[in-house]
């Protein structure tokens, strides 16, 4: 009986957890002195069969968080506020340098590497809390956005962050191979 209950419980958590997109490599750029804004990057993978819409972001510790998109059009760098970001079933959407990013605004104190920032993404399937480590600029980037310095300890492999909102350990055991094969 107990086993049945436990497995039922587990089954329900897993099914709940899988409603959320998988989060890979979340990182917030350290703030250079004088800056009161910075960017956050991550990759979202929608492993579910239904569309997920990201409708906004907020944080318990940051005054204002917005989803922005950098774009360079006719040699002019612009930033556009995004009201929503759509993750189609099976889609991978990267928040990366030169594209979508989380803009952390009106920072009251500097963010330094080693810290972490809690960011909540509002989505069509509920809010999801993401713990985003703060790193030196260029450190959290993928290989093509090169940084000369070696990656900090332990971050050579993609870090798949805990989505704290639900018991989502099942999700976090997914390897990158599985993700990219989608």
């Amino acid at each position: 009986m107990r086993t049945l209950l436990l497995s039922l419980c587990l089954w329900s958590t897993i099914s709940l957890a899988s409603n959320f997109p998988l989060v890979i490599d979340p990182v917030v750029n350290e703030t250079p002195p004088g800056a009161n804004v910075t960017a956050g990057y991550l990759t979202l993978v929608n492993e579910t069969g239904t569309e997920i819409v990201i409708t906004g972001a907020y944080s318990p510790t940051i005054t204002k968080v917005e989803i922005h998109r950098s774009l360079i059009k006719d040699d002019v760098a612009k930033m556009e506020l995004q009201k929503s970001v759509i993750l189609a079933p099976g889609a991978t959407v990267k928040f990366e340098h030169g594209g979508y990013h989380l803009m952390l605004m009106a920072l009251t104190e500097p963010l330094t590497s080693g810290q972490s920032v809690d960011i909540i993404l509002s989505t069509s399937v509920g809010d999801m809390l993401i713990e985003m480590p703060v790193k030196k600029i260029g450190m959290g980037m993928h290989k093509d956005q090169t940084s000369q310095a070696p990656e900090p300890q332990g971050s050579n492999t993609p870090t798949e962050t805990e989505v704290k909102m639900e018991e989502s350990h099942q999700m976090n055991t997914d390897s990158e191979e599985q993700v990219s094969s989608k």
Binding site: N29, P32, G34, A35, N36, V37, T38, A39, H68, S70, I72, A77, M79, H97, G98, H101, M103, L104, I137, G138, Q145, T146, S147, Q148
Partner: peptide
């Protein structure tokens, strides 16, 4: 050219220029 209230492109460009200089 850029500005410090720019969270994405400007700091990354400065970081890249530092990479260029060290290269």
């Amino acid at each position: 050219f850029g500005f410090t209230h720019c969270p994405d492109i400007c700091p990354n460009t400065l970081n890249e220029m530092n990479g260029v200089v060290s290269q």
